[in-house]
Design a protein around this nucleic acid. Structure first.
Lengths: 235, 235
DNA sequence: GAGTGGTCTAGACCACGCA
DNA sequence: GCGTGGTCTAGACCACTCT
């Protein structure tokens, strides 16, 4: 806690306050100068924290007026936020492991190009189902290159965030990524998992997720039933 | 041009160089200190520009090494970039106006909540079809609140960016927004426009777009045929 | 050790909103 | 006219990468 950057610390505090309702929609955050005084940091540092809140859609800024708390996102904030379990108001999001974790060799044609090291190492395979209010909402297939992940397949993942486990046990943090989106028809298997008819429209995300480990990426193929909850994002 | 912020100016220069191939994938950008010297600005300003490039997916940074040019996005960068026509490598993207622009009154249940001023003013309605390499790829319906937009319905929009017209004639710039995504089935009309069978899976985006005019938003409902080109974004 | 990006300070001037 | 956020300067120290 002590060695987290000050701007990130302030970000977390304000984010929590907004989510917890200390500041409500339309409220003004304390002014930048006030935040400077209270937290004993300088304005560029405060502004760095506020910029992150703007980027993540929590506040909007207005020159001459202040930082205005925005409407909380409705729907699942998978597009811009880091990890689905951290999405807002989803405390009742359950995770069920359908397959794995187990080590596999890469298939011939993977959805993203792979480096030689990744190809040689194989990957940890894992299928998960995310359930919101009893309704299956995501089905995701994860591919983690098997590079320096000791005892990974032996860990328990039920109802725990994959991102949390990577952070706590392997010091791997997600720092960003890229993704492709398509609307597809549910096949037999997807339909069964997401409890929709075969042929129903499903949102498919193919994600390449970057981490703080240089050149360590992992990959995720996510199928979403957007009938239950739309995907939400800011830009 | 002279009064654009320095960080934005540098962003535009570097962005153009990356798109034009001056810096290729994997290349290192000049170091931050070098950019300071060349452009006669200080490091926080340079870093502000580089942060924007990271956010938009053009570069990745690595401590101790430098700023590395990323792979150029493949697909349509509608998720994070501002306006589809500005997407990369889409010089052959044509726009066809299918309806409007014309002034209408709001429907009872609009996809986003509206302020009283918006409700009273009505909106400029416009349907557009975006065609990539001869294939229809987007169909979008736009709703611009009819507030201080003189002569808007008289302007020509064929093959011109809506964002450009707003900027040049009305000094309205897009500064961000929020969006919801769903996978839906094409109905009769959407199928006809996008040249797919009724019932085909289609990506539907509902967007609320914020501008530099305080409290001026406009709205867009976009239908994408993702069979032709996936939607691409960074996070 | 030299160079890189990551974080932070302590100021400054400006444009904008509001009373 | 005052306080707000927007931009910018001129430094500083640190962690990291490469050689």
């Amino acid at each position: 806690m002590a060695n987290t950057p000050r701007y990130k610390h302030l970000y977390e505090i304000l984010r929590k306050h907004i989510i917890d309702g200390v500041y409500k929609k339309g409220d003004l955050l304390p002014s930048e100068n006030e935040l400077c005084r209270v937290h004993r940091i300088t304005r560029p540092t405060v502004r760095h924290a506020l910029d992150s809140l703007v980027r993540d859609g929590f506040i909007k800024k207005q020159q001459g007026k202040g930082s205005i708390v925005s409407t909380l996102p409705q729907g699942i904030g998978i597009l811009s936020l880091k990890g689905t379990t951290t999405a807002i108001g989803l405390s009742n999001l359950k995770t069920k492991i359908l397959a794995g974790p187990e080590i596999r060799a890469w298939d011939q044609s993977f959805m993203f190009p792979l480096s030689d090291i990744e190809k040689e190492s194989g990957y940890v395979y894992m299928e998960r189902l995310r359930i919101l209010d009893g309704k299956p909402i995501f089905f995701d297939i994860n591919y983690l290159p098997n590079i320096n992940l000791p005892r990974f397949t032996a860990r328990s993942f039920e109802d725990r965030s994959l991102f949390d486990i990577l952070r706590k046990h392997y010091s791997i943090r997600v720092v960003g990524g890229e993704q492709r989106l398509k609307a597809i028809k549910a096949d037999e298997q997807i339909g069964r998992y997401l409890n929709v008819r075969k042929g129903s429209p499903i949102l498919h995300l193919e994600r390449k997720i970057a981490t703080n480990r240089v050149d360590y990426y992992f990959y995720s193929s996510v199928f979403c039933n957007t009938d239950i909850s739309a995907i939400y994002g800011t830009f």
